[in-house]
Nucleic acid binder design. Structure first.
Lengths: 150, 150
DNA sequence: TATTGTTATACTCTATAACTATA
DNA sequence: TATAGTTATAGAGTATAACAATA
């Protein structure tokens, strides 16, 4: 019998509940530690908006909806990003009411740098784990990603 | 050969780096989803302080240091908790400069309720996973907790 | 008349500096 | 003189309401 065909018993409800609590806490602790250790200069809400713009330019309205903040808040956030030279506002090609917000090359560099720093903290911890623990986390990260995207 | 004696190869540096990035992102996504889905009435900073006080009463200074915020910020946070009836300020038995902040019974109930709601989202997701995936997450939560507490 | 974005204003959480009481 | 906590004040980020420009 190889590991791939081994059968596992499903967890009982009480065990599911306990695991859910522990797992949730563990993820929150990791998030907090990563954020604290990274000491990056991009504020969380700015970072989040910049990530959205990495894929494609968007209007302030779209950004507000995606980030679930009010339109005036997004106006302010975009304004701050413009001041720092990380995004640019341009008129919409056809609808003159709309504005198109685009990421600058400087912003792409800043994002890359920030991610590198955030990953560094985690990379050190992961590299200090046993190979077996690393293997488990490899599978767990896939499962957690799937769960978060549900 | 059982799983317990199976040997795993250590990840190469590039794989460690990749795993670290994926794992960090997965934890942050889970945190965000949990926070978004729980819609609880306790603000994050209040919740965090209340958790610290669950173990034992503490002074505002201690709380400020643990939470890594300024003393005036903690004064304000504690003030808000007092207003909501979740903590009480009492004079220190020997040092009259100090204040002892204690959690009320109402707060303990509110904490329990909030945790139950937060766990609920995660519990539903966990119960829908394969038994094998549940087993992996069980081990992963232990490892992640260890990493976060390092 | 509806939609997009901005401005006006206010509330919360954060910080630093100055102040009070006590050690 | 140093320490614990608070108050004073200001800087972000958030929200709702009101407004201007355009569809």
């Amino acid at each position: 019998m190889s590991e791939n065909t081994r059968s596992y018993a499903a967890l009982r409800p009480s065990a599911v509940s306990s695991l859910a609590g522990e797992l949730r806490l563990a993820c929150m602790r990791i998030s907090r530690r990563v954020r604290y250790e990274s000491t990056d200069s991009i504020a969380p809400h700015q970072f989040s908006v910049m990530c959205r713009l990495e894929e494609s330019p968007r209007s302030p309205g779209e950004l507000a909806e995606i980030e679930r903040v009010s339109a005036p808040s997004m106006t302010r956030t975009v304004g701050g990003l413009v001041e720092r030279g990380w995004v640019e506002r341009a008129p919409h090609p056809t609808d003159k009411r709309q504005v198109v917000v685009t990421l600058t090359d400087d912003a792409r560099k800043a994002l890359k740098d920030t991610r590198r720093k955030r990953d560094a903290w985690m990379a050190v911890r992961v590299s200090n784990l046993d190979p077996e623990e690393q293997a488990i986390l490899l599978r767990a990260s896939e499962i957690l990603t799937k769960v978060a995207n549900e």
